[in-house]
Each structure stands twice: as structure tokens, then as C-alpha cells.
Design a binder for these strands. Structure first.
Lengths: 191, 191
DNA sequence: TGACCTGCTTGACAAAGATCAAGTCAATTT
DNA sequence: AAATTGACTTGATCTTTGTCAAGCAGGTCA
């Protein structure tokens, strides 16, 4: 049940079968159903999670009570609140299941052990962060520099999957606009 | 001339003096004056840069021709266009000097060599990315979820330095608002 | 079957922020 | 000293987006 994780590691580093098996042994599987929570605001995030199948999303709730979608993770991606994970402070995020999911989880201690024991794992994690950072920076660029319509079009181009698998109110929240505005933008574009 | 870099490494990992010297030997120093460019849109970013002193900022230019500040790097921080650095595609960003700066630069080949030769360096880089990712995620959260005024106040709280060392039009651009709006917000708050 | 969600759309109106144009003040240039 | 430039502010107006209220279609539940 860790095919995707091992594949993800192999894509980024050249690990031996033995190293892969060691990695695998550090993870705990878990299944969650749609609408269940992997993390709730106020709790400490004590695991990093790899999505083997299904989909999850993380969001923050602002002063007005509106959800802001921070991240969406489909199969093959990781999700967690790294801030809470590393500081051990209570999280300000919720992580909710979007589609029934099979997960692989690793706690902080095991993560540290694995980093020390398998250098290839450290390289894998470094490359993960690197790519995640680059992707986020592009998101910041489009968030601060584009109109709602431009942001939507860019999302369509870059992550068409998101739109096929997420309800539009979450897409709106990911873009930082209201569902009404997104609805009007879509109408506008289709004409 | 690499005191800050070595200090930054020591803060994150326990490296021996020998390891630190090896790291240092892989970097090339360079000085740039205010308003000079470290990278121009269209060029490939072939170095990662550590700021020993001074300050730089990176920005993208959108369709309307407005600058969008992506990152600001004061002494002790890194700056580069990682997307271009790793893909070797032309950059869409400019990196400009905000205050006369002393830099330490490493090209991609040297970076790979150093990662392979000094495992502590890899750990250092991993932790850098990790922290940068966490910080960016918080920026995304405030960018999509808050009003202009709330964003400004949060910036004041989290990075008061930025406001003391950056002209307000760049702060506005960092926040994704016009200089006029920022000016009115500041007036509003001070009353 | 009917009541009830959920996801999405539409309309009227309000608010936030952008744009355009002008003006101030201090620092720099000539 | 006069002219220029850069950083910032102000006012009037326009555009974009948010808010509130309502409605609809499809799926689910009892």
C-alpha cells in the first residue's frame, strides 16, 4: 500500500530496494472518508502525511469566518501544517478529506530518524520542499499581481485537475474570491 | 567575508570548522550597488545568492506593467529565482539591489558538488527550504484571506524591519495594493 | 413521494480598492 | 539658488469585487 510513495521517492532520487523498504517501514497507513478531518484548528500537527489515494485540502478560517484554502493534495502529494509540526504549537489550519483517502503518515521522531538513517530520504525531502517552494512562489505572484479573472485562467492552465475534482466554492476560496465572483467570472469567460 | 553565511549554517546544523571551510570555498563573493541588477527578466538564473550585507528584492512585471515584489532579502537571507535556476529556463523575475550589498554566490554545479560532498550542507539547505516554505505559506494565507489593511498590519507585526528599510511603493507592491491605497491605509491607522 | 441538503447561479446594491491627476516636501543635481 | 527627482499624499471618480437575498437543479434521506 505504499506504491505511490516509493514511486515518488524513486522519481526524485536513485534509491536501492533496501533503502525504499526502510523508508516504507517508517510510515503508518490510515484511511479516511470524505468530510473527515486529518487536523483540526487548535490541535498540534504531529504527522506529515503522504496521500496514496484520494484528496485532502487544508484551510484557515479568518476573522469573518470565511475559509481560505491554503493547499490541495491529491494522490502523490504531501500535506500537513509544517509550522505546527516543527514548532509543536497548536495549528491554525484544518485539514479535511475531499475524496475518500488512503494515507501514509510519519511522526516527527520517526521523520528525524529516517532522515538520519537514509540520506537519500533527506535528499528526497529536500527536493520536495524545493519544488513546493517554487510552486508556492508562483502562487504568490499570481495572487498579488493578477485580477480574479486572470488568476482563474492561470489556475485552469496550470492545474486543470483541481477544477475537475474540487467544488467551485473551494476553488473560489483557493483563489481568494467569493463563490459568487467566481461564478460570474466563469459565465463571462464562457461567452 | 563569509561570517554571516557560516553563522547561518551553524545556526541550523552542527558543522565542524573543516566542513564550514569547505562550504566557504565553494562560494564566490561579489559586491553590487543600489539599483544594480543581480538578475534580469529573460536571463537564466545560474546562481543562488546569499546576502552578507545590504538588501535585494525580486519582482515580476505583470501585463499592465506593474511590479510585483515576490521576495525581499536582507543580510543573512538567500535570494534567487529557483525555478529558473533548476530548470535553466529564462527567468520571469528581476532581482534588484535595494541597499549596497555584499553577496556570496554559488552556481548550480558547485551547489550539487557541495551537497554531495558535505551532508551537513544538504541538511542546511533542506532546513532553509523548509522555513522558506512555511513563511511563504503564511504569506499566501494573508494574501488571499485578509483585506489590504489587515495585510499591512500583519506585515508590521511580523516584519517591522521591511517597513523601515523599504520605500512604501515597494511595500505596497509586496502586499499587492497600489501605493495610493497603502498611503490611505497608513493615514487611517495613525488616526 | 416529499422534504432537505449541497453546489451553483443571478440580481441589486454596497464597499474596497484602482486609476488618474495634481500637489507637497526633502534630497540631489546643475 | 534654481531645477529636478523621488517618495509620498490627497481628492475625485470609476471599476472590481463583496454582500445579501433569492432561486434552481440534482442528489439524498426518511
Amino acid at each position: 500500500m505504499a506504491e505511490l510513495l516509493l514511486q515518488s521517492i524513486r522519481e526524485k532520487v536513485s534509491a536501492t530496494d533496501e533503502e525504499l523498504l526502510i523508508c516504507k517501514s517508517f510510515f503508518t497507513p490510515k484511511k479516511l472518508k470524505k468530510k473527515q478531518f486529518l487536523l483540526q484548528e487548535g490541535d498540534v500537527c504531529n504527522r506529515m502525511t503522504f496521500v496514496e489515494s484520494g484528496a485532502l485540502f487544508s484551510y484557515a478560517t479568518n476573522a469573518k469566518g470565511t475559509q481560505n484554502v491554503i493547499q490541495v493534495a491529491f494522490e502523490g502529494w504531501w500535506i500537513s501544517d509544517l509550522y505546527s509540526f516543527f514548532t509543536q504549537e497548536p495549528s491554525t489550519l484544518n485539514i479535511e478529506v475531499l475524496e475518500d483517502a488512503e494515507l501514509l503518515m510519519i511522526d516527527r521522531e520517526q521523520h528525524e530518524h529516517l532522515l538520519a538513517r537514509v540520506p537519500k530520504y533527506e535528499t528526497y525531502i529536500r527536493l520536495l520542499y524545493q519544488n513546493a517552494y517554487i510552486a508556492l512562489q508562483r502562487r504568490v505572484e499570481s495572487t498579488i499581481g493578477l485580477t480574479a479573472e486572470e488568476k482563474y485562467i492561470r489556475l485552469l492552465e496550470q492545474y486543470p485537475t483541481i477544477l475537475q475534482r474540487m467544488p467551485l466554492n473551494l476553488v473560489a476560496s483557493y483563489l481568494g474570491v467569493t463563490p459568487e465572483t467566481l461564478s460570474r467570472i466563469r459565465k463571462q469567460i464562457s461567452l
